[in-house]
């Protein structure tokens, strides 16, 4: 089978499977989040009531948007404190068979920010830093709760469209409980079992030593007492030559974390190699399941949206925009990677695909996945807020690396994170109808709600927050010693590494371009701050928009109302997304992957 056909077939299979599963899941989520009686609510009612009683929650009361927002912020503040404390105290806590010492304060801060914001940026190496309790009770719990937070915000924005002259938008504690209890937990349990079936490990054993057949000699980087690499006077890593015939195999409760890592679009790997590690993602089938899990809930939420607003075509229009952008950019990634490095070809190396080799650019890719599954995974993980990786994005060709970077910069809405994808897409829909309204001279409306100055001001806060923190953060890193010290590659590629790090943090993705030493005080602190602002300021604006819309009356549909369920609206939406993404980021992209691409072409 030819490589392009393999890519097209794999992509079509994954998308067909996800769309097939997304429909019933989307309808189910609409029922659950609105409390319409179904089998899950009946079975889960006693547990749900117990949770409310134990936490002192009045499930029948609803609040306005500002009280809802402050509840959400307090909840996530508490989550950040718990994750921070677990890391700093882990040497005294149980389930730490490797006796890992406390994680450094700056790394603990960064990781706490990363996991409450659904970013899951990892400056640390999981298997050599985190005890099992920290992984399970800190990181995996936040994988559920951060995804539940995102889903709650998306549901509230939908309520904003469907409620009329309402002062309340919902109950945050009920929304988070229901999305965790009825959606994320059962799906994660199912996927964890399926992954165990493929060979993903699930235990709390201490690490195992295996004796290798051959002796291995390698340069081992020296680290200080906090696990950070030691550098010499010139800033190069200090290494020592080590010969060994023993390989340590890390263990742990991986499958349970892997499942919610993908389903919750979190992305924080149990191991440093993330989904490239054979204990996280051992087979082609587990890889298929993980890509599908990444895309499932964000796509299903478009059905939820259609069901809740009473017109499923509205959801289909959003889904079409998501999928068109996703497919187009995934194809660019695949073509770039399969095309390979022109310098390799000019050196008389056969880089073409044959029956015995994949051809193209296999640097940083697992042979068990190949180029098609790696390009698809890279596009899925950055088109959502996941950030899990099954290949090294840093090793992609310049235009291959451009794709994950640009997918994040578009706002991660192809199809986006759990909840975040839908509400980001809805903000772009509001912008789209506003632009269309300006062109035709009518008051913009979306789903029967007039879009006025307040909504546009809030949408502007939403749209501008992330590019502001990403570009200012990148500029500061480029200008300061602390920022430049972490870069391992010179020139345009080094700039891409910094831009990628801040783009990933600001958009709450969490994948890394690697090639950058991010476990430093500069990057731990700056990226931590960027992650929080990039997550919660747009959420505040979204909830304010929801409150504003909910308080409005619904205007009747007339002949002058622009339809928002057809191909024309989908094209308008895609145009708005691409236009804003390009306007925000083209100058920065031109200095990174674009110039690197032309340098490579020029050298060729």
């Amino acid at each position: 089978m030819s490589a392009p056909l393999q890519f097209a077939l794999l992509g079509a299979l994954v998308l067909a499977f996800v769309i097939l599963c997304a429909r019933p899941l989307g309808i189910y989520m609409a029922d659950v989040m609105e409390g319409k009686p179904n089998f899950a609510l009946r079975w889960g009612a006693p547990l749900e009531r117990w949770i409310y009683r134990a936490c002192g929650i009045d499930a029948r009361s609803e609040t306005g948007w500002s009280t809802y927002t402050i509840g959400l912020l307090v909840f996530n503040l508490a989550g950040a404190m718990v994750v921070y404390a677990l890391q700093r105290l882990q040497q005294w806590l149980p389930l730490n068979p490797q006796h890992f010492s406390a994680v450094s304060a700056d790394s603990s801060f960064n990781t706490a920010m990363a996991f409450v914001t659904n970013t899951d940026w990892q400056g640390y190496s999981g298997e050599s830093t985190m005890g099992y309790l920290t992984q399970a009770a800190g990181l995996a719990v936040q994988n559920f709760l951060s995804a539940a937070t995102g889903m709650a915000v998306a549901i509230v924005l939908i309520r904003g469209f469907i409620r009329r002259s309402a002062a309340t938008i919902g109950n945050f504690w009920v929304d988070v409980t229901r999305s965790s209890l009825y959606v994320l937990l059962p799906l994660a349990a199912l996927l964890a079992v399926a992954l165990v079936g493929q060979g993903v490990i699930q235990n709390v054993h201490s690490y195992r030593d295996a004796t290798t057949i051959e002796k291995l000699t390698f340069d081992n980087p020296k680290t200080d007492s906090e696990g950070k690499p030691l550098l010499d006077d010139k800033g190069n890593p200090v290494t020592e030559s080590v010969t060994t015939q023993t390989q340590t195999l890390p263990m742990g409760p991986v499958a349970s974390q892997e499942a919610i890592k993908e389903l919750g679009t979190n992305g924080g790997g149990f191991f440093n190699a993330n989904s490239a590690h054979p204990f996280e993602n051992p087979t082609a089938l587990s890889n298929f399941m993980e890509i599908a899990a990444i895309l499932l809930i964000p796509l299903a939420l478009t059905y939820t949206f259609g069901v809740m607003v009473g017109d499923r075509r509205q959801g289909y229009a959003l889904m079409a925009a998501m999928l068109i952008l996703f497919a187009a950019l995934a194809a660019v990634a695949f073509v770039s990677e399969q095309g390979g490095n022109p310098l390799t070809a000019s050196a008389s190396v056969d880089a073409g695909a044959t029956a015995t080799q994949s051809g193209g650019n296999m640097e940083g890719k697992e042979t068990r996945f190949g180029i098609a599954a790696s390009a698809l995974f890279a596009s899925a993980t950055t088109g959502t807020s996941t950030g899990a990786v099954n290949s090294a994005h840093d090793s992609m060709m310049p235009m291959g690396g451009f794709v994950p970077l640009f997918l994040m910069q578009l706002g991660e809405l192809t199809p986006g994170g759990v909840g975040t994808g839908l509400y980001t897409m809805l903000i772009f829909a509001i912008l789209g109808v506003f632009i269309a309204g300006l062109m035709i001279g009518r008051t913009p409306e979306y789903l029967g709600k007039k879009i006025q100055a307040r909504e546009m001001k809030l949408a502007s806060i939403f749209i501008l927050t992330t590019p502001t923190v990403v570009l200012i953060g990148t500029a500061i890193a480029v200008m300061t010693e602390g920022g430049r010290a972490g870069v391992l590659n010179p020139g345009a590629h080094g700039f891409s590494e910094i831009l990628y790090a801040f783009t990933s943090a600001g958009n709450n993705n969490g994948s890394a371009f690697a090639g950058i030493s991010a476990n430093t005080v500069f990057y731990n602190v700056s990226l931590g701050i960027v992650m929080w602002i990039g997550r919660f300021w747009p959420i505040v604006a979204t909830l304010a928009i929801a409150g504003s819309l909910a308080s409005k009356k619904r205007v009747p549909v007339t002949e002058g109302t622009m339809p928002t369920h057809g191909a024309l609206f989908t094209c308008l939406l895609i145009g708005t997304i691409v236009l804003i993404g390009v306007l925000n980021y083209v100058p920065a992209l031109a200095l990174g992957p674009v110039v690197e691409h032309f340098m490579l072409s020029g050298a060729h």
């Binding site: 500002s66 996530n76 006025q452 701050i529 505040v540």
Partner: peptide
Amino acid sequence: MDIIYLLVILGLFMASVGLTLAIGRLGDGS
């Protein structure tokens, strides 16, 4: 050291609450 990072977390939280309150005071602009 811990107190500094906990204060940074608290500061980020307070800034977000501040944004919420500021938006609450934002008129409809019409």
